[in-house]
């Protein structure tokens, strides 16, 4: 299986934040969701992947190539959509396209026109008059019109209305049908990923918590509810974190089979969503921070 993105022991230190020894691989032909709470470092990792930031240590390879020697070649095959509106706001979409299109050898004018019509984008209005949703659609129209092999998006669904969000997810689904394109996108709207992602990379506080198939995550993680008398110090260690009230406890465990063998029918089990995993992971790190 081809690897499209490969990060090996990447570290980047800022004054008050650190991307700490991050390693993961993104496989060709799949949709990989990049999740984590706000401030977890998702945008920083995306910037590192796009070579907007250089790591202090570690290695980043895209399509098996290094940015130092193949920057243009790599970026020729990457489509990008950022959370922030990055286009020149005083230009029209048509003028913006005129600047960008000649930079890509595989630019497909017909495909661009197709997306402009599909997204109902005005070509001759200045971009500063566009709504956030329209700007995102414009970014998407440009990103999808040069037959990129890798599509990288930073929070693309933020600011989109629910109808277009669904359409957007359907477009992403279509794109990976031929298994030639790879999509890597960050979001904190985790329900989007539950519709289309094959793999999940979970980042918390600058560190990778896990990289796994969405199906495996669904099979392994579980929410457990029960009465307080089921818990003791050793059993509590089986949970990522716990929420206790006078009525009982609710906690997240990452080994469903093991936890079920411990509690049997005495506890209740529910599927854990990505949001639950993010919530309990954050709670765990907050607890450790308090103890420290």
């Amino acid at each position: 299986m081809d690897t499209v993105i490969e990060l090996s022991n990447v570290t980047k230190t800022f004054k008050d934040f650190k991307i700490n020894n991050v390693s993961f691989q993104i496989k060709k032909g799949f949709v990989t969701g990049f999740v984590g709470a706000n401030g977890a470092g998702k945008s920083t990792v995306i910037k590192l992947i796009m070579n907007l930031l250089q790591p202090d240590s570690g290695e980043i390879r895209i399509f098996g190539l290094d940015y130092k020697t193949h920057e243009k070649e790599i970026k020729e095959h990457i489509a990008f959509v950022y959370d922030d509106h990055v286009f020149y706001e005083n230009l029209t979409l048509n003028n913006m396209k005129k600047i960008i299109a000649p930079l890509y050898t595989n630019w497909d004018e017909e495909l661009f026109k197709h997306y402009v019509i599909k997204f109902q984008l005005p070509l001759t209005k200045k971009l500063k008059t566009f709504s956030k949703g329209m700007l995102m659609k414009s970014s998407l129209a440009i990103a999808l019109s040069h037959h990129a092999k890798l599509i990288i998006m930073d929070e693309p669904t933020a600011g989109l209305d629910p109808i277009f969000r669904r359409e957007f997810l359907a477009i992403l689904h279509e794109l990976v049908e031929d298994e030639e394109k790879t999509i890597f996108f960050s979001t904190h709207i985790t329900s989007d990923l539950e519709h289309i992602a094959d793999y999940i990379v979970f980042l918390h506080d600058g560190k990778i918590q896990f990289v796994d198939e969405l199906l495996t995550i669904d099979e392994n993680f579980t929410l457990v509810k029960g009465s307080l008398d089921l818990l003791d110090r050793d059993i509590e260690k089986e949970f990522i974190s716990l929420h206790k009230t006078e009525l009982g406890f609710e906690g997240l465990a990452k080994d469903k089979k093991h936890i079920m063998s411990l509690f049997g029918n005495l506890a209740m089990y529910e599927s854990a969503s990505l949001e639950d995993i993010m919530f309990y992971t954050k709670k765990r790190s907050d607890t450790f921070a308090t103890i420290d």
Partner: peptide, 18 residues
Amino acid sequence: SSDEKNTARILLSSLPLT
């Protein structure tokens, strides 16, 4: 200054340009 905004820099540096 027209290319000095961080958004413009991010755009240009993400395109196939060194």
